[in-house]
Nucleic acid binder design. Structure first.
Length: 871
DNA sequence: GCAAGGTC
């Protein structure tokens, strides 16, 4: 009899690093690893499961497998009323279709009898559990194929083994709470964002933002910055006065601090000054000495790393995370995304310290710690995720580069700090009395530097006091009446903002950097020197507007309200759909009210921004009314016809000029020339009307369309320039300006009409560039085709002085592929095949493949046999 | 073009 087949068990973690840890712990390191069908690895080993032999496969997802969005019919901003979004259905689609996680899980699960979910032990992890279950095709309650949930409190061997022995079921309520949050965030965020973007962008010309977004996290984040701004702006400085008596004792001159600190009434201050001056003698009334201690830090978590990176190292959160991520993947530090500040009991401090003994800066200190005995870190909080961020390998600046080195140094210093002694110092306080008023002096003397020797910026300042005796009387040398003025706080620092967000539950350690980045990118705030966040006119108008209409919208409570509601779902107290419905109902009411009251916010915008009609400068004529339209250069750049009240979007991120007052034969609009920046940026003509409403069917690749537009939605600024236009006779169309097929893609090489004197062709699909004879006076396309390869024949007017023509003449026509002279003057940029094929094989005829790809379907032309391929 | 959450 053959032995019974061992069970196959699939285990899935939230990220590759945890899959590896789990597999290593459970296999004792005896495993084999293969690349799965997609992007995540699979670790395999044999073991036992519930007393029987088992084959284990451990793999992972990469965060959420799915994310929610609206169906296609709700994607068009111009067609969907944002109010309808509250009732719209939502879809789950794979977050990262290219990673093929769904396929991967489904394939790996096929031959497995059991599924064990090792997702992170938080709500999001619980939600991903059910995403994984869906992908694997396991069904909850089948007796033969069971789904288990491993609950681990840290990613250590001990906890992993313990979790394996105590498998439970995934918690559907917690997962459904996340579903609820996703739906609420999506509907509320998108509805408000679309409404206010459309409202304000259609009205003002100098609004410098493509999207005026709203979100229950980003908006309160902005709120914090604006709140501080308003505090500064409404601040009224007040004068105050303080008494500063001076004494000289044992050779020290000493300024005494007044117990009343400061007074805001000059007369009263002067009265006290007289009192003190009249007395003129200080009496020592009390001397005390107390030992104080400053605790060493607890372990470093992500949020604290981000705060230090911003305030001390000058790195923004996004940058800091990038650097940390790189240090992690290169093995210099441990996993940088963690909430925990407590170390697992099994943490090996000794060997982590041991790696640092050769460091030129702190090596000796670390060696001494090892020799004298280091301390255990202060107990922090254990969030059950990863251990605090610690160094894993010794490094030097050359290995890491300047920025990463700074961050690495901090991680090391912090870690060494956590196992150093506390800082101990003595605090001396001497109290004095002069004319019945109480004054004091405070001295500090450090006994044990402890962790402050490795983190010197936290050191306690030494301040020596001369010896005093109780009852001693000393003459006052002078009494200064100090006049000061209260000053406003500074702009909110990024580090303060991170603290506020953390305290108010806005975002998570991973999303805090994203929210801050968002409000910067949307032009609501700017990061200024010292990483201070200064709100822009747009950011201020928005927040003040919410404050006028419905302050809830920008208060941090809006997030806690949602969290508190979905917690009811997580605890199984209220049904998921009832909570979603209830919360959305409330937000819908808020939305309706907001729309009704938008004029109140608009009043603030009117004071800051100029209406479209007053914006921009006259540039080109409208084909409908024949009046000048204005060019509005702020993003999204566009043309505005004040007479027709029409907006025509333009290609973004380049410069726009009038094109020789030429007009489009289809609609009479004056043509424009768009140029991308840089010496290799292409320039092309476009008609503002055709660009926005392509006149021919079947132009499926528009310029500026995002590559991921699988849903068919297009961004502002995508459109049809003349180089895509199949107009048969217009001198600017693809038909007139196209020369031959692109050697790199299915596009067509088109003459850049304003590239003199560095004449060139560019591809209308990819970034392929071909340089034509340089320095020519003029190069233009003709209506003739090459009889050999059907490329468009070019006419070149060489410069008199530099003409390559032997008889000194300047005019020449020919095919750039088949004409020996022209071809020898052509040079390829971006891409190799053009040059190589031409060079190695000489000129030949087209093979019959290729041609004017990229022109519209149903063209009237014979398929021109023009290709560089297959020579 | 839009949210926030995960991870790379």
């Amino acid at each position: 009899m053959a032995p019974p087949k061992p069970h196959k068990i699939l285990m899935v973690a939230e990220k590759p690093s945890i899959a590896l840890s789990i597999a290593s712990a459970l296999s004792g390191g005896h495993m084999s690893t293969r690349r799965g069908g997609s992007s995540t690895e699979v670790h395999e080993f044999n073991g036992t499961f519930r007393g029987s032999n088992a084959q284990y496969k451990v793999t992972s997802v990469i965060g959420h497998v799915f994310s929610v969005d609206f169906p296609a019919k709700y994607q068009d901003w111009t067609v969907t009323d944002p109010l309808d979004l509250f009732q719209a259905p939502i879809l789950k689609a794979e977050s990262n279709p290219k990673a093929h996680i769904r396929r991967h899980l489904s394939q790996e699960a096929r031959d497995c009898g059991h599924l064990v979910l090792w997702l992170d032990c938080d709500r999001e992890g619980e939600n991903i559990c059910f995403e994984v279950v869906e992908c694997t095709g396991f069904h909850g309650n089948e007796a033969r194929r069971r789904v288990y949930r491993a609950r681990f409190s840290s990613v250590t061997e001990k906890d992993i083994l313990k979790a394996m022995d105590n498998l439970v079921e995934p918690n559907e309520d917690e997962a459904r709470a996340v579903d609820a949050r996703q739906e609420i965030d999506l509907k509320v965020g998108v509805a408000f964002t679309r409404f206010q973007t459309s409202y304000f962008q259609g009205k003002y010309g100098n609004l410098d933002s493509r999207v005026i977004s709203y979100g229950p996290c980003q908006t309160p984040t902005l709120g914090f910055c604006v709140q501080r701004y308003l505090q500064i702006n409404t601040f009224k400085p007040e004068k105050f006065w303080a008494l500063h008596p001076y004494i000289t004792h044992n050779g020290y001159e000493l300024q005494l601090e007044w117990e009343r600190n400061k007074l805001f009434d000059l007369d009263v201050a002067v009265m006290f000054q007289n009192l003190v001056m009249e007395d003129g003698i200080v009496e020592v009334t009390d001397i005390s000495e107390k030992q104080e201690s400053k605790s060493r830090p607890s372990g470093l978590n992500t949020v604290n790393l981000l705060k230090v990176a911003s305030s001390a190292l000058g790195f923004g959160p996004q940058m800091a995370m990038q650097l940390a991520e790189r240090l992690y993947t290169q093995g210099f530090i441990s996993y940088p995304r963690t909430e925990s500040t407590a170390y697992p009991s099994s943490f090996d401090f000794k060997s982590t310290l041991g790696m640092q003994t050769n460091n030129p800066t702190w090596g000796d200190y670390v060696q001494k710690l090892l020799d004298d005995g280091f301390h255990r870190p202060r107990s922090g909080t254990d969030a059950g995720d990863h251990p605090p961020i610690t160094p894993m390998r010794a490094a030097n600046e050359d290995m890491l580069g300047n920025d990463a080195w700074k961050l690495y140094q901090y991680v090391c210093q912090h870690f060494i700090g956590t196992v150093s002694p506390d800082c101990k110092y003595v605090r001396n306080k001497v109290e004095f009395s002069i004319g019945g008023e109480i004054f004091r002096c405070i001295g500090q003397h450090v006994i044990v530097k402890g962790f402050t020797s490795i983190m010197p910026w936290l050191a306690v300042n030494e301040k020596n006091l001369p010896q005093f005796k109780k009852g001693e009387k000393i003459e006052v040398s002078k009494v200064e009446l100090y006049e000061g003025e209260t000053s406003p706080p500074d702009y909110l620092s990024e580090s303060e903002l991170i603290s506020l967000m953390e305290k108010n539950g806005i975002g998570t350690d991973a999303s805090i950097p994203v929210h801050i980045n968002n409000i910067c990118e949307r032009n609501f705030v700017q990061v200024q020197a010292g990483r201070k966040l200064v709100p822009t006119a747009l950011g201020i108008s928005l927040i003040r507007g919410y404050q006028c209409i419905d302050p809830d919208l920008c208060l941090p409570d809006i997030r806690s309200f949602i969290e508190q509601q979905i917690t009811l779902v997580a605890k199984g107290q209220v049904d998921h759909s009832r909570v979603v419905e209830h919360v959305l109902q409330q937000f819908k009411q808020k939305f309706i009210y907001f729309v009704k009251q938008i004029e109140n916010m608009d009043a603030l915008f009117e004071a800051q921004f100029s209406p479209l009609a007053d914006s921009g400068r006259a540039l080109s004529k409208c084909g409908k009314c024949l009046r000048y339209m204005k060019y509005i250069s702020t993003q999204p750049s566009r043309m505005y016809c004040g007479t027709c009240e029409e907006v025509y979007y333009l290609p973004q991120k380049g410069t726009i000029k009038l094109y020789k007052e030429l007009t489009c034969p289809l609609d009479n609009f004056e043509l424009l020339i768009f140029s991308l920046a840089g010496p290799e940026g292409k320039s092309f003509p476009l008609c503002p009307y055709c660009y926005n409403s392509p006149p021919f069917e079947g132009i499926d690749t528009l310029f500026g369309a995002t590559k991921t537009s699988s849903t068919g939605k297009l961004g502002k600024g995508a459109g049809m320039p003349c180089f895509l236009c199949p107009h048969p006779t217009c001198p600017h169309s693809l038909i007139a300006q196209g020369v031959c097929a692109c050697p790199e893609c299915s596009g067509t090489l088109v003459l850049d009409p304003v590239s003199a004197p560095k004449w060139r062709l560019y591809c209308n699909m990819c970034n392929c560039l071909v340089y034509l004879p340089q320095g020519a006076h003029k190069i233009s396309t003709t209506r003739d085709r090459c009889p050999e390869c059907e490329s468009t024949i070019l006419e070149v007017d060489f410069n008199k002085k530099t003409t390559p023509l032997l008889d000194g003449s300047t005019l020449y026509t020919g095919c750039i592929l088949c004409d020996e002279l022209l071809h020898s003057l052509v040079e390829m940029k971006h891409g190799k095949s053009f040059f190589k094929r031409m060079g190695s094989r000489g000129r030949g005829r087209g093979s019959g493949r290729g041609g004017f790809r990229g022109r519209g379907r149903g063209g009237k032309w014979d398929d021109p046999k023009m290709s560089f391929r297959d020579f």
